[in-house]
Simulated assay, not measured.
Amino acid sequence: MRPAHLTAEPPVVLVAHGSRDPRAAAATRALARAVAAARPGVPVLPSWLDHTDPGPAAVLRDLAAAGHPGAVLVPLLLTAAYHRKVDVPAAVAAARQGGAAIEVRVTDVLGPADGMVDTRLLAGLRRRLAEAEPGGFDAVVLAAAGTRDFRARGSVGRVAAALGAELGVPCRVSYASAAP
């Protein structure tokens, strides 16, 4: 018999990159509330890899301490670059090293993990563009944090190409760091 405080479905742990800008954490918390509203009865908890607490390892340890046998960890990342390949697995390992007996299933990133650009990602980008410039635009720059991982840069390029094709305007990629 499962204790009453445990749900039939495993809790969802959202993992954002993190930012010094407090609006980023507020946006992640709002997303967690929206996902929780869409999945009544399933705990949805935010976490961050950097700049904001709690980190995913702490959230996983807390879930294990509360008796949850498993969790689904969702990286809120657009590419399967360093953070997905190194930081996320390290957080899961850190939780287990801290004594957390919890099974963790890590999902794909939000971007094109299998080479295909998800139409929901494109719809979200179109919504944001419409909010920023309701009257339209004649070109788009898709700004990304940056990565040295050429496959991750390729996935950002696929998103830019798909977005440009949908909008009928040129769409170019620009990186803040770690990539030309």
Results as ranks from 00 to 15, higher is better:
L31Q: 04
L31D: 02
L31K: 03
A32E: 09
R33M: 02
A34M: 08
V35L: 02
A36K: 07
A38C: 05
P43W: 07
P43G: 10
P46L: 14
P46D: 15
S47K: 02
S47L: 10
S47F: 12
W48I: 07
L49Q: 09
D53F: 12
P54L: 00
G55S: 14
V59Q: 09
L60S: 10
L60N: 11
D62W: 07
D62K: 00
A64Y: 03
A65I: 10
G67K: 09
G67H: 11
G67D: 07
H68W: 12
H68I: 07
H68A: 07
H68P: 00
A71Q: 08
V74A: 01
P75Y: 00
P75R: 05
L76R: 00
L77P: 10
L78W: 09
L78D: 14
L78Q: 13
T79N: 09
A80W: 07
A81V: 14
A81R: 04
Y82N: 13
R84L: 09
R84T: 12
K85I: 01
V86L: 05
V88S: 02
V88K: 07
V88D: 04
A90P: 03
A91V: 04
A94C: 12
A94E: 15
G98Y: 02
G98L: 11
G98A: 04
A100H: 06
A101T: 13
E103N: 05
E103P: 05
V104Y: 12
V106T: 15
D108A: 09
G115T: 06
T119E: 15
T119I: 11
R128C: 09
R128Y: 13
E131T: 09
A132W: 00
E133M: 05
E133Q: 12
E133C: 12
E133R: 15
G135F: 09
G135S: 09
D138Y: 10
A139F: 06
V140H: 03
V141T: 15
V141C: 12
V141H: 11
L142N: 09
L142A: 06
A143M: 01
A144L: 04
A144F: 12
A144Q: 13
A144Y: 12
A145W: 08
G146E: 15
R151W: 06
G154D: 11
R158D: 01
V159Q: 03
A160F: 01
A160T: 10
A162D: 06
G164C: 03
E166H: 03
L167K: 15
L167S: 11
G168H: 11
